[in-house]
Structure formats: C-alpha cells, structure tokens
Write a protein that binds this DNA or RNA. Structure first.
Lengths: 188, 188, 188, 188
DNA sequence: TATGAATGAGCGTTCATTCAT
DNA sequence: TATGAATGAACGCTCATTCAT
C-alpha cells in the first residue's frame, strides 16, 4: 500500500532527491517555503515534485513519515545494547541533539501521537513501540522510575527537543538542561 | 522608543483593539491568518491596522511583546509570595498550562532569548529578571538545585509548554509529565 | 440580495468595467480566456477582478446574468408595440442578429431554462415571462400557431442564434435561413 | 494526404483506439479534458497518443473528421431510399437526435463550412454533396420548398441540433420543436 | 515503436501593502 | 485619521509536450 508501483529507477531516484530537498528546505526556511524552492534544491522541475507528491500537504506528510522511519530505525539500533540505562539516556541525548540541529525532527515525533490523517496509525505505533522497548528495559534495571509511561516520555522528548532548539549553539548548556530532565526521569 | 507619540485617545483605543484581535486571530488560525481577518475581528478597516503597525511583522512583534509584558507581570505577582518553593512551582505550572492552551505564549518566551531583533533587549532582560527572582528565592530555601540558571530554566519552561501542548486535553497526564521535570529541578 | 452593499462610486464603476471587459473577452476568445486578459481589457489589476468576483465561475455567472437582464429589457420594450405580429418577429430577428455578432448571448438564453446554480430561478422566470408575453400576443392575433409554447420558442431561438452564428457574414443568407424558421412558426 | 504512411497493423490499431477513446472522453468531459485521460481510456501511454497526433489540436481535428466521415456515410445510406420525402425528414430527425446526445457532432458539421483549416476542403464538400443529394430529391418530389439551399439546410441542422441539445431529456418536446422547423422547410 | 517521467509556461487565487476618498 | 478598493507579486497546481528508457 505504501509503495503501490515499482517505480522506474530514475523516477525513484528523483523521488528521493525531492524528499531530501524538501527536508532541507522546510527545515531551513519553514514549511511555508515555496514548493518551487524544493524543486530548485532537488534540481528538478516543479512538475516533477507534483508528480511524486500531488499536493504540498502530501509532500509534508512524506517528509514527516520519512523522519519517523529514521527515528524508529535509530531507536531499534539502541534496543539491543548491553547497558539498557546508558542506551536509554544516550539515545535520548543523541536524538535531542539531532532535533536541535534540524528542528523539524520533533514535529515528526509529535505527529506520532496524533493525527496527520494520511500517515496511517501503524507508523505512530512503531514509534511508540520502539521508544517503549528502550524505556522498559531501562526501567527493569531500576535506572528509570516506574511511573513513566511511553506517552509521558515522548512528550518529554518533544519538549526537550524544543528546549534544545531554543538554547541554540551552546552544547554544554544544552547538555546541562537536558541533564535536568534526565534526573527527573531517574528512579530515586 | 516603544511609544514615540502620545496618541489621541481614539487612536490608542484602536491600537489596543487591533492588538487584542491579532492575539485572538493568530492564536486561533495561526500566524498565517490574513491581516484582514484581524481587522474584521477588531472591527476596524484594514487601513487602520497598517496605520498602527506598518507591516505584518511589526504586528506580530507587538503581539509577542504584549505577551511578554503579561508574563513578566504575572511572574512579579508571584515574587512576593510567602512560600518561595510553592510560588516557584505553582507559577511554572500555571504558566505551562496557559501555554498549552495558547501555545504561542511559548514563542514569546523563546523570543526573549534571542531572535526578533526589533523587540529590543530590555524586555528580554525583564523576563530574565522576573523569572530569576523566583528561581533565586526558591534556591535559597533549598528547594531547587543550585546548578540551575535562568537560561536553563527558561529553556525548560519553553520545552515544558511544548510538551504540555503536545499532550493536549488530559490534565492528569500533563500534571504527571510536568512533575517529572519538576523533580529534575528539585535539590536532592 | 443581489446588491448587498451600496458600493462606493468608484468601486461600482470598476465592477461595471470588469463586467464589460469580461463580456468582450469571453465573447472574443471563449470562456477559457485567462482572467488576466479580462483585467487588462478593463484596465484594472487582477486583484480587482477577484475582489468583485471571487472566482472565475462567479464572473462568468455575472456575465450571464447581465446578458439575461438585457434580454429581458429588450423583450419588454417590444411588449407594448402596436402590431404584435411584427413585434414578435422583429424581436426574434434582432435578437438572433445580436447573438450572431456576440455569440455568447445565446448561452445566456439557454441558461434561463436550466441550471447555472447560483443565478437563482427568478431571472429565468423573467426571461420566460418576457418571451411568453410576446408570444401570447402574437398568437392572439392569429399570426403564430397555437401549439407553440414558451419552451419550444426559446429552444428555437437558441438554435436560430446558433445557425446564424454558423452562417457568419452573409446577412441575406442569415435572413433567408431565419425566415424558414419563422415560416414554421406561422399559423397556416 | 490524410494517411501519409501505411502504418503497421498494431500502430493502426492503436491509432483507432486512441481516436475512439478521444471521442468518448471529449464527449463526456468536454474538449478541455486532459490528453492523459484519453490515453488512459485507450489503454496506451501518453507518448503513444502524441506519436499518432502530434498536438492536442490535431487529435481534436481527427475526431471531427471521423465524425464527419460517419455523417456522410449515414447521409449516403439514405440517398437511395424509395421515398425521398421521408428519407429527407427521417434523416434530419435521426441526426438531430444523435447530436442532442453527443452535441459535439454539431461542431463537426459546423466545421465543414469554414474554420478548422487543417481539415481540408474535400470533406466539407463531401458533406455538402451528401446532404445536397437528399435535399434535391426531396425538392423534386415537391415536399420541400425550392428556395432552400444546402448552406441554409446545414445551418438549420446545426441550429436544430443545438435546440435539441438545449431541450434535453423530453423526447416529445424535442420532436414538437423539430417539427416546427420541418414545417418551415415544407413547400406550401 | 511504446512508455511514462520530466518539464515549465500558464492559470486561478491569495494577501501584504498602498493610496484615493 | 479611518476606510476599504486597488494593486501585483507570489503561490499551489495543471497539463500539453518532450525525451530518455
């Protein structure tokens, strides 16, 4: 359903280029950036963008979906780590950093919780599952308090990313601030 | 500088009406809402809006500045409370709740740190001062850890407001999530 | 309902200019002509066209309504003529000529019978009434056969106008062709 | 001239399929329908459509030409009928009915007279000849007035088809209206 | 030869801003 | 000073046409 047609090789390459360009442009200039900017960045004609994504909303959705896919991937790559506590906090940290750099990553996470109608519920479920796995393992080791659920955790990540974005350049400052949230998450 | 001319009474009233309308409209429909919508809500002509705020950006800035003014006012009203610990946390809580409803309050706070050049540094300083006062008093009582600065605190508030906004309706869930951040702020 | 607001004098003048221009342009180049052409012909900016007629469809409707208004007016001016027979045929002839010159007049008549949703039923009724009055009087004098109804008559006018348009320049040829239809209408 | 090259069998089959599809699509959705719709209906790629008809205009012309070919064919099939009077009127009637359903047939006829330069004069001549034959025979029997020429007759048919189209569903109403034109054509 | 992806001019429409009333 | 009509740049999107596969 997600990939109804096996596109030609060149078409698939262009689709990917457009998606990359869209991520870059929307992150840099906001989602209000003209679609033509995306086309220019991708090095294709405006018609090509609309051939692959029939409306601007569809393009935004695709960007979101792609980000969520990457997020799930990264979360899963941490799931098998030896030390669940460090896996949990390192993942959170890395992710907040990423989000601060390309602010819109957070929107992707946020979207997992709610709507974005066309996205389908599955991808949101995958996000929750991936994060939940990391959380559970960290809780089992006693490192993270028991009364935190996946929903609260995702909300905190959304918020932490926003905070990191707000803080801007200063890495040490960001780390210290994030540390406060981490401390709140730890079992006493 | 902020109010170069002593406006006539009716002009001042119109300015205020436009500002109110802008806050309402932009909160409800986003900052992309047409300026004409603001004029309609204010019950004035579009020309009047542009007379008082020569560009749309200027209008947005003015809305932000107004929000920050109110924020400072509220922070100050908590500054004299008997119990500094509770004053600190209750203020944070109330404010996150408010922001959850009208998320743009957050943007206002965020703007205090950096961007929005036209806003002038004074108003940002006032915010920092007002929040700082609450923070210091709470730290003096030993309720809040010493290694938190005003900048980190504001970042956390920005993030907490975003988290609360993300969580939406469920007040208990919001309280629990906010509580995690609060626990992170407390001295051990 | 048709004129909700008493427009400013200059606004009304511009509205009329746009309507005139639209009639000219759509008649000459077809309804597919770009709206900007209409603006150019009217000597106004494109925004002005859309201020007065919020969509292109609305503009087309307005052109149609205006034509029907004129048609009714002309029919009424013939209604009081001394000789009903000549009034009837002269009106039909004049009107077919007009339509041949500006082909789209016919569409207006045709629209009186059916749809064009927004136009409201009243104007269609007015057309039928105006034509019906001419017809009845001519039938009373015995000049026109009794078994012709308003609907048939309008259909014939629509068709006659199309025929005249098809014939183009040659006035004598048009007159002869129209005469055949007229003969069909006469009582034997 | 019309078929410069003897196409390969499959190419000719594709050409015919495209032509059929074009007639169907343009009749249903108007001539503004995208060429891609025609390709889809024909079950071929868009490239194939443009290979056979290098522009959309060329495709429209071909559809017109095809319609006229059929028209001539039908007229000829009536030419040898025993009763010229009934052949004449039955043919006109049948044809107006057809046109009412697929109004664009009319345009095809109209095109025989003048415009559509590419169509070549021959096909127009064929139409005139075929209709003229029916007309002459009917005039010889005294059923149709002598002062009607082929041009007037075609114009009347164009108009009658338009009238029938205007009248829509009601077959009895269409017949009555057409009857008026027929009466105009009859000798007194 | 057939395909369908790519192209980009062009269209309808919006909205910040200006200016005559 | 207040009004709202006028302006036109800019945007999202379509579709005839081209061309690499």
């Amino acid at each position: 359903m997600t990939e109804p047609k096996p596109l030609r090789a060149d078409a698939r390459r262009n689709r990917a280029r457009v998606l990359d360009a869209a991520e870059t442009v929307f992150a840099a200039r906001g989602t209000g950036a003209p679609t033509e900017e995306v086309a220019r960045e991708a090095g294709v004609g405006i018609g090509t963008v609309f051939r692959h994504f029939p409306t601007k909303a569809a393009l935004l959705e695709a960007v979101l979906a792609e980000r969520m896919r990457r997020f799930v991937e990264e979360a899963q790559s941490f799931a098998a780590a030896e030390d669940p506590e460090s896996a949990f906090f390192v993942f959170l940290g890395r992710w907040a950093e990423m989000s601060a750099a390309k602010n819109a990553y957070t929107d992707a996470l946020a979207a997992a919780g709610a709507d974005v109608p066309r996205l389908g519920p599955e991808i949101g479920a995958q996000v929750r599952e991936a994060v939940g796995a990391l959380l559970s393992r960290a809780q089992l080791t006693g490192a993270v308090r028991e009364d935190v659920g996946v929903t609260e955790l995702i909300a905190l990540m959304v918020g932490a990313a926003r905070a990191a974005e707000y803080l801007g350049e200063d890495a040490a400052l960001r780390a210290r601030t994030l540390g406060i949230v981490f401390d709140g998450l730890r079992a006493r």
